[in-house]
Structure formats: structure tokens, C-alpha cells
Design a protein around this nucleic acid. Structure first.
Lengths: 199, 199
DNA sequence: CCAAAAATGGGTTGTCCAGTCCAAAATCGG
DNA sequence: CCGATTTTGGACTGGACAACCCATTTTTGG
């Protein structure tokens, strides 16, 4: 993929481009960002982007990877504690609080890209799907532990997917309505469902 | 809004343009559709679109209205029967079956537009939000009836929003993964939650 | 210290597309 | 049936943007 050898400086420049592109695409949506916007925001000049990326598609793929990692990093402290109701509720609170801080703008960094590209960019769609699978696996890991311990009836695989799905819906509705209530209500309903299955 | 007087023929042409635009935007995403694509698909020529719409934004607003109505029409048979668990389950089955028929393409006609425009088109975002409110009201109406009858504990307003939100997440995840399982699992979890609160 | 490789700057190009214009044809209202 | 209004056709424009190119500077490795 990256046949080119990169020096430390080159690596840093490449990274600045990806971070700037990710931020802009998150704020404005993939299609509303031009390579010139990215160029300006990253503080690089002219041909720099094409020196590090074959085309806009290659940059987009790097952005998806970067956002997936960013999402995992942001929740790292919570994702490995999803094996108790208390841990699940703390995660829920953190997600809601985060959206509140962002004034309900942007939605999910992965999902908003996914929705933008789903119907005309199969490669990007698959990258987004794979990002979701990582996220889902992290949630499943907590619920599976709960289940093994005998603290959870019901299929932890289904519950993990249902939780992530409700979260995605909550982020979308919250973004559209500019109000955290859909996210709160959807997560609370799903957590009550989990609680009803736990002992 | 539409100050212009339209003859029957003009009305028909206007409608062909909106329908064609809605279909294309659903298949490819709002930003991937050019006015020339719409022109060709609607079988109209040159200045026609600008004769009936001030600009692309005005056409988009008409498309959002049209899609909201189409979503409501498509579910009309189910939405007024959401006052029993059987009715809710029939609705769930119809939604899943519909996605299966579409091979999980396109997602939600309203939500996919919403996600595309949320961060850079406040007017369109508000129109989408208002479409969601209509949809939510229809669901709420069923659950409220159930509640009044004493067949449902828990807040019907919250449950309606949670259901619609889970549905939106399910449609998004199903679109990205090209698989109906997320939609099934999310709706089933939410319906089990409702069932647990009903008697 | 020196060649080779990598990084940078900025100009250029070809295409696509939203929006405009004007004139011709069809339709309507009286 | 006739003047007014609406509908249609198609050409044109101006700007934006992805992608390309080449010359210059900086960095690397031996």
C-alpha cells in the first residue's frame, strides 16, 4: 500500500494531513471538504497531499482508519469496564456528556462518513463496516464476561450489536435534532433491557 | 413559497422532477446527484428544473417533503396498529422484509439525507427533523393508546422515541453491513423491552 | 561531505456543474 | 380565436476542484 519510504518529517506531515482532513470531514461532511481546504488546514502546500496520497480516495481511507482509532481511544477507559451494569451506565453517561459538550454536532465520526459513502464507494463502506466490527467486539467482550460469570441471561452477541445499533441511532437523531434526548432515551431503554436480563 | 401558477401539465412536470431527484438521491446520496442527472432521469430538458425550483436547495427541500410523505405512506397500514404487541411485531417484520427486498441498500430515505446535510445545511436539517417528528408522533400515538388502556407501563413518549431511534440505527448499520441482522436485533431488543412493560 | 532520495512550493490543466439567458412552442383564459 | 401566460429547448458562462508537473530545497545514509 504505502510503498514510499517516509522520514520522520514526512511521517509528521502525512499525519497532519490526515488529522486535518478528519477534523474537516467531521465538521462539514466528507463531500463538503476540498483538498484545498485540507491543504490550508494542515498548513502544507500544493502538491503535498498528492505526495503522500494517491488521490482523494486514499486520503479518505486513511481518515476512516484514523477515526476508528480515535473513537476507540476516546472510549478506552469505558470499553473495558462494560461487564457490569455500573460500567455500562458510566459508559452511557460519558457518551451523552460528550455529545452535550459538542452541542450535538457531528454525530458519530465513523457513522457520518459511512452514511456519506455507503451507496457510491464500496471500498470506504467496507472500511467503515470493519471499524464498526472493532467497536462491536469491544462491547461484546464486556457482555460476554458478564454472561460467563452468570450475571447475564440472553445472547451477549445480540445484545452487543443491539447496543451499538441503538447508540448509532441515538447519535444520528441527536445530531439531526441538536438535542441529546434521543441518545439518552435509546441508550436508557437498551440498558434497562440488559438490566432486566441481568442478576 | 410557490408563488408561480402551475397548469396541470406544469404540476406533472414538477412532480416528475421531484420523484426522479428523490430516487437518485436515495440511490446515490444527495451530493452525488447533479441537476443534469435529474434532468435526464425526469426526461425534461435544460432550464426546466430552474423553471420549477429556484435552485438545488429548493429542489432538495421538495425532495425531503416528498420522502417524508413516502415513508409515512409506505407504513400507513402498520402505523395505525401500533397499539398492540402483535401490531408492533407486524410492523417490525414489514420493516425487516422491506430492507431485505432492497438488499439493504439506501438506508432510511429521510435519515440518509439528514446525515448528508446535517452539518452544512441548517434549513434541510430542520426539514428532516420535522419529518422525524411526524414519524415519531405516529408511533407515539399507538403506544399512548396502549398506555391509556392500561396495557403499557412506562412513558409512551420515551418509548416511541427509543423505538424510532433504534430503527434509525438499525437502518444505518444494515446499510453499512449490507445485512439485516442489526435492524432485526435492535428492533427485537426494543420490542422485548416494550413487551416487558406491557401486560 | 556528497550523491541519492525525500519533501516542498506553486503553477497549470481539463473537467464538471450550478445557475443564466433567450427564443420557440404549447396552453390557457376570456 | 387571440393575446397573455406558461412550458420547453438548448446553448452558454464562470467558478470550483481534483489531479498533474517540474523545479527547488531539505534530509538521509554511507
Amino acid at each position: 500500500m504505502t510503498a514510499k519510504r517516509l522520514t520522520a518529517k514526512g511521517e509528521a506531515t502525512r499525519r497532519r494531513i490526515v488529522v486535518a482532513a478528519a477534523q474537516l470531514m467531521y465538521e462539514r461532511g466528507v463531500t463538503e471538504v476540498t483538498l484545498d481546504d485540507v491543504r490550508a488546514a494542515a498548513g502544507v502546500s500544493g502538491s503535498q497531499i498528492y505526495h503522500y496520497f494517491a488521490d482523494k480516495q486514499a486520503l479518505l481511507m486513511a481518515v476512516i482508519d484514523h477515526q476508528t482509532q480515535a473513537v476507540m481511544d476516546l472510549q478506552a477507559g469505558h470499553l473495558d469496564r462494560l461487564d457490569t451494569m455500573a460500567g455500562l451506565r458510566a459508559w452511557r453517561d460519558a457518551l451523552v456528556e460528550h455529545q452535550r459538550r459538542l452541542q450535538c454536532r457531528g454525530g458519530c465520526p465513523i457513522g457520518s462518513i459511512g452514511s456519506d459513502v455507503a451507496e457510491h464507494n464500496p471500498q470506504a463502506r467496507l472500511a467503515v463496516a470493519s471499524g464498526y466490527l472493532r467497536w462491536e467486539a469491544a462491547i461484546r467482550s464486556g457482555l460476554t464476561a458478564m454472561h460467563r460469570r452468570g450475571h447475564l441471561a440472553g445472547d451477549p452477541d445480540d445484545l452487543a450489536l443491539a447496543l451499538l445499533t441503538a447508540l448509532q441511532g441515538g447519535l444520528l437523531m441527536t445530531q439531526i435534532h441538536r438535542n441529546v434526548r434521543p441518545l439518552e432515551v435509546a441508550l436508557d431503554a437498551m440498558l434497562e433491557h440488559v438490566a432486566a436480563l441481568s442478576r
